[in-house]
Simulated assay, not measured.
Amino acid sequence: MIETPIIERIDADLEELMERFFAGSHREVEAMRAALAEGDFTALARLGHTAKGTGYGYGFRGMGHIGLALESAALAKDHAESISQVERMARYLATVRVEYIR
């Protein structure tokens, strides 16, 4: 199944940072998966909090929303919901497309 791209409108001044932003975000998803595998909800909550701040800070509202949901799930030690949110983040990063605005 091909997912419909998610379009985020990002300030054009941030364009040169996007390659590093996405590389870091993909590494964070792997860290989230590792924290899940270890049952480390403290680390998972921190990673969700970071994704929330980074996403909202750069203008990636979808990432911010998912980070918030992940942080909440991890703080509640809800394993199933945490898995769901980590996979949601992975899908988001795989499908998001940037539209630069001036």
Rank of each mutant, 00 (worst) to 15 (best):
87 E>D: 15
10 I>K: 02
86 V>T: 10
8 E>L: 06
90 A>P: 14
43 A>G: 15
78 D>M: 02
69 A>C: 07
40 D>Q: 04
27 R>K: 06
61 R>M: 01
18 M>W: 11
80 A>M: 05
55 G>P: 09
18 M>N: 04
54 T>F: 01
15 E>Q: 05
20 R>G: 02
43 A>P: 14
44 L>T: 15
100 Y>M: 02
8 E>S: 05
101 I>D: 01
73 A>H: 06
88 R>Y: 06
42 T>N: 04
8 E>H: 02
8 E>A: 03
17 L>R: 07
76 A>M: 13
74 A>P: 04
70 L>A: 01
55 G>A: 08
76 A>R: 10
11 D>I: 15
92 Y>S: 06
1 M>Y: 14
60 F>Y: 05
83 I>C: 01
72 S>F: 07
20 R>Y: 10
47 L>F: 06
50 T>G: 00
44 L>I: 15
93 L>M: 11
27 R>D: 14
5 P>K: 00
27 R>G: 05
23 A>N: 12
43 A>V: 15
98 V>N: 09
62 G>K: 01
83 I>T: 02
76 A>P: 14
79 H>I: 06
9 R>A: 05
69 A>R: 11
85 Q>P: 10
89 M>Y: 11
82 S>K: 03
91 R>N: 07
93 L>P: 13
13 D>S: 13
39 G>Q: 11
43 A>T: 15
56 Y>I: 06
65 H>G: 00
51 A>Q: 09
66 I>Q: 07
102 R>M: 07
19 E>Q: 10
72 S>V: 13
19 E>G: 02
39 G>R: 08
56 Y>P: 07
36 L>Q: 03
49 H>R: 08
100 Y>E: 09
12 A>H: 05
